[in-house]
Amino acid sequence: MVKWLSRKLAQQVSTIVLMVGMLASPTLARDPFRTSNPRAISDRTEAAFRAIFEKGNYTEATRILNQGDPNEPLSFALKGLLAYNNYQGETDQGRKQALLSEFRGYATQTRTVAQQLAKSDPLRGNLYQAAGIILEAGYTAATEGTVRGIPQILGSLQEAFRYLDAAEKIDPKDPELNLIKGLIDLTLSTTLNLPLSSPTDAIARLQNTAQPRYVADRGLAIGYRDLKQFDRALQAVDNALRAAPDNPELSYLKAQILVRSQRHGESIPLFQKALTKRDQLPPVTVRQIERELRNAQQRAAQR
């Protein structure tokens, strides 16, 4: 149960770290979320963002983030995501604990910098404070266990929602806000079965105002998959793949949807395609794809 909850919280972590609100020089500004009134984000941080979520290349993201921008909350959040993934895939207990401590440090830094950011940009500052809180909830899940940890985790999620609600009051149509909140709501309502959000509202956010589309469509595909609406899930993941065809995690996601649709034979080439880029994925993800591929091959052989 603890490992399961940690994995699901890791999904929320990977959702939250999509938040952008940079303190970088406007001359280097690029905003993948907004076409009007863009916020500033440094070339380096944007490259790390795209390496993870557009390319599915965690190796490249790690290299970029080793030269990360110390005043950008997103940089710390992305480093937290990488540390958490490495923690999940590590077998040496000493190294595992070191990675967990590293993850906690990045969670704290994300929240601390967000508090400063809120003074100049309340919307993004509130978003990043929510990010830091959810990162810290992931640390709690990994260290406290189910009985002791869940009350604190639920309290953290409620606190995070207060910051998200504060951001929404500032600009309810902000595409970054609707992407993040939509993904969180969908995860809580479909995967964790927590009564903190509505899948219908989350889907509407992702369909109508969230950007970039390849991330929103990926979120929709996961949500529809978990709601067992497989035709819609396939349509959403195909939309994401058209925009980000080189992301092995999208091929893996489509394979999962096909498996749940009992189309095991069709899923096998997609699992195999994802594994052609194993060197750029976290080890824990590679092992999971390999395991699901073997299961699909066994099921297909039985038909």
Rank of each mutant, 00 (worst) to 15 (best):
V2D: 12
K3W: 06
L5T: 11
L9C: 06
V13Q: 06
V13S: 04
V13R: 02
L18N: 11
M22L: 07
S25V: 03
R30W: 04
P32L: 05
P32R: 02
R34V: 08
N37A: 14
P38C: 12
R39A: 12
I41F: 05
D43A: 10
A47D: 12
A48H: 01
R50W: 08
F53N: 09
G56V: 04
Y58D: 09
Y58K: 04
T59Y: 04
E60A: 15
A61N: 07
T62K: 01
R63I: 13
Q67H: 15
Q67C: 07
G68A: 13
D69H: 12
E72Y: 04
L78N: 02
L82W: 00
Y84H: 12
N85C: 03
Y87S: 02
Q88L: 15
E90R: 01
D92F: 03
D92T: 06
Q93V: 11
A98Y: 02
S101H: 07
G105P: 12
G105Q: 14
G105K: 02
Y106V: 05
R111W: 10
V113K: 06
L117S: 01
L117G: 00
S120Y: 05
Y128T: 02
Y128M: 15
Y128S: 09
L135K: 00
T140E: 08
T140N: 05
A141H: 02
A142I: 06
E144V: 02
T146A: 12
T146D: 11
V147M: 11
V147W: 09
I153W: 06
R162L: 15
A166H: 04
A167V: 08
D171A: 03
E176G: 04
K181D: 07
L183C: 13
T187I: 13
T187H: 14
T187K: 10
L192F: 03
N193Y: 03
L194F: 06
L196R: 02
S197M: 01
S198P: 04
T200V: 10
D201M: 03
L206D: 03
A210G: 03
V215S: 04
A216R: 00
D217E: 13
A221F: 08
A221E: 07
R225L: 14
D226H: 15
K228N: 15
K228E: 15
Q229H: 09
R232V: 06
L234P: 03
Q235I: 09
A236S: 15
A236R: 01
A236C: 13
L241Q: 15
L241W: 05
L241T: 10
P245Y: 13
D246R: 03
N247C: 07
K254R: 14
S261N: 11
S261E: 14
S261V: 05
Q262P: 00
G265V: 04
I268N: 02
P269Q: 05
F271E: 00
L275K: 06
K277F: 09
K277H: 14
R278K: 15
D279N: 15
V286K: 07
I289Y: 02
I289R: 07
R294Y: 07
A296R: 08
Q297G: 05
Q298G: 10
R299A: 04
Q302C: 08
Q302I: 11
R303Q: 13
